[in-house]
């Protein structure tokens, strides 16, 4: 059996949790909501993270457009996904939520725009 302290990063509350592992089972205490338990289990099996970044555009008034992954990706793929994001140049006027890279690196997550900065009429 092993016990470790873990801080849940799911929301700004940032619960400090006690995570016990025994016989393959994981017991979580100190979490305010059930997302804490899910976070702890993921951290011990497959840690997941989100990425928020920017992509280059060809529009001089807005040289970069904010973007993020549509759902969490494995933590060890962060820099691989960043490489993909940094290879893109947006040349069309797209809206918030539009897909910039579909199914990035086959991780089942899209890279999407998070701003209407380039929308027509902005």
């Amino acid at each position: 059996m092993s016990t470790r302290e873990m801080v849940c990063i799911t929301c700004p509350r940032g619960c400090t949790m006690q995570v016990e592992q025994f016989d393959g089972a994981i017991k979580v205490t100190g979490n305010f909501c059930k997302r804490g338990e899910q976070f702890a289990v993921n951290e011990l099996t497959m840690p997941m993270r989100t990425i928020c970044s920017t992509v280059k555009t060809s529009f001089p008034e807005s040289p970069v457009l904010p973007c993020r992954v549509s759902k969490d990706i494995p933590k060890d793929k962060i820099f691989d996904v960043m490489n993909e994001i940094n290879r893109v140049v947006v040349t069309e006027r797209i809206s918030r939520g539009d897909v910039i890279i579909k199914n990035v690196l086959g991780l089942d997550a899209d890279v999407i725009s998070t701003s209407d900065l380039l929308r027509k009429g902005e």
Binding site: C11, T50, C52, P66, R68, R96, T114, S115, D116, L117
Partner: peptide
């Protein structure tokens, strides 16, 4: 929901 700053503002 977990939004980015621009998404929240917009």
């Amino acid at each position: 929901e977990k939004l980015s700053g621009p998404e929240y503002a917009e």
